[in-house]
C-alpha cells in the first residue's frame, strides 16, 4: 500500500520533461516553417528589396547604382507631380468610398427580402466584379465617347449638349470614380447581404412589437447598428481598392488631360516603367504603402470602438 503510493507520487524526471518540451517546440517550428518560407519569399524579401531600392538611384538596366540615403524621399516631398497625383487620388477615394458603400448597402437592403428575384439581381450587380476592368474600361471609353458613345447620343437627343467626360479636366475624375463605383458596388452588396442574413429575424419581430413602425425605424434601430462590423470591413476594403486605382486611368486617360487624372499608382508606374527611375518609384511605393497602412489602422481603431458589442 505504502509502496504504491510512493510510486504514484514520484515526479517525472526533469531531464525527460525538458526533452519532451524541446521535441514539441521543434515539431511546432517544423509545422510553421513552410508557411514562414512562403511569407518570406513572397512578401518580406520583396519588401526589403523595395526598401533598399528606395535608398538608391537604381535605373532599370543600369550597370552601376549609387546609394542616395534619403534623397529620394526628400525629392518626393517637394515633387509637384506627386502632390497632384496624391490630391487626385484622395478626390477619387472621396467619391468612390461613400458611393460604393452607400449604394452597396442600399441594394443589399432592397434585395435582402426578395425571394424569387434576389438571385437574378445578385448576378446582375456582381457581373462588373467578375469582368476584367481593363476590357471594361475600353467599353466605357466607347460608351462615353463624345461623338460615337450612346451616353452623349442620349444627352443630345434630350436636348442637352455633349459632355466630354474624359477630356474635360473637371469631369474626368468624377467619371473615373463613377466607373470605380460601378465596379465595386456588386462586391460590397454581397458583403452587406452576408451581414444582413446574420441578423436574427427575431430582432425585427421584437422591434415590430416594440413599436418600430416604418422601414426607417427598423433600419436605424436594428439593421444599421448590427451591420457595424460588416460596414467597417467594407469601408476598409473599398478605400484601399479605391486608393489603388490604376487600370481605368492607364487605359482611358493616361493621367490626362493635363495631369488632371494622374493618380498615385499611375505616377509610380510612369516613374518606374516609363522613365525607368526605379529607385524613385520604390520610394513612392513605400509612401503609397504607408498611406494604405495608415488607412487601415485609423479605420480599425476609430470604427472598432463604435461597432463593438
Amino acid at each position: 500500500m505504502m509502496a504504491s503510493a510512493v510510486a504514484i507520487a514520484a515526479p517525472v524526471p526533469v531531464v525527460r520533461r525538458d526533452r519532451q518540451r524541446l521535441i514539441e517546440k521543434l515539431a511546432g517550428c517544423g509545422f510553421a516553417f513552410p508557411a514562414f518560407l512562403l511569407l518570406l519569399l513572397t512578401n518580406l524579401v520583396p519588401l526589403a528589396v523595395l526598401l533598399y531600392l528606395s535608398f538608391t538611384n537604381y535605373e532599370l538596366g543600369a550597370l552601376d547604382t549609387r546609394f542616395l540615403g534619403l534623397d529620394n524621399f526628400r525629392k518626393a516631398v517637394t515633387d509637384p507631380v506627386l502632390r497632384r497625383s496624391l490630391a487626385n487620388t484622395f478626390v477619387y477615394v472621396a467619391i468612390v468610398l461613400p458611393g460604393a458603400v452607400g449604394l452597396g448597402l442600399l441594394i443589399a437592403v432592397l434585395l435582402h427580402r426578395r425571394k424569387r428575384t434576389r438571385t437574378f439581381y445578385e448576378v446582375v450587380y456582381f457581373l462588373p466584379v467578375t469582368s476584367t476592368l481593363i476590357a471594361m474600361a475600353t467599353v466605357w471609353q466607347f460608351i462615353l465617347h463624345p461623338n460615337l458613345g450612346p451616353v452623349n447620343g442620349m444627352l443630345r437627343a434630350m436636348g442637352f449638349g455633349e459632355i466630354a467626360f474624359l477630356s474635360e479636366p473637371a469631369y474626368v475624375l468624377p467619371t473615373l470614380a463613377a466607373i470605380g463605383i460601378w465596379q465595386l458596388v456588386g462586391f460590397n452588396m454581397v458583403l452587406f447581404l452576408a451581414g444582413l442574413s446574420a441578423i436574427p429575424r427575431d430582432l425585427y419581430e421584437a422591434a415590430e412589437i416594440d413599436g418600430c413602425r416604418s422601414g426607417i425605424d427598423r433600419f436605424l434601430t436594428i439593421t444599421w447598428p448590427l451591420l457595424g462590423p460588416t460596414t467597417m470591413f467594407v469601408i476598409i476594403t473599398t478605400s484601399i481598392t479605391a486608393f489603388k486605382v490604376f487600370d481605368t486611368v492607364a487605359v482611358m486617360t493616361r493621367g490626362g488631360p493635363m495631369g488632371s487624372s494622374e493618380v498615385l499608382l499611375y505616377a509610380i508606374y510612369l516613374e518606374g516603367y516609363q522613365y525607368f527611375h526605379m529607385g524613385y518609384a520604390a520610394a513612392l511605393t513605400l509612401i503609397f504603402l504607408a498611406f494604405v497602412l495608415l488607412f487601415s489602422i485609423l479605420q480599425t481603431f476609430v470604427l472598432e470602438r463604435r461597432v463593438h458589442y
Binding site: P200, L203, A206, A207, R213, Y309
Partner: peptide, 28 residues
C-alpha cells in the same frame, strides 16, 4: 403588432445586442 397592446417574450429573448440594458427595456 405594436398597436395590439400585447408584449412578447421570445425563446431567444431577442434582446438588441448593440444596446445596453436600459435602452433594451426603454425602447418600446
Amino acid at each position: 403588432p405594436h398597436e395590439r397592446q400585447v408584449a412578447m417574450v421570445f425563446q431567444s429573448y431577442a434582446l438588441y445586442p448593440h444596446m445596453r440594458v436600459f435602452a433594451n427595456i426603454g425602447l418600446p
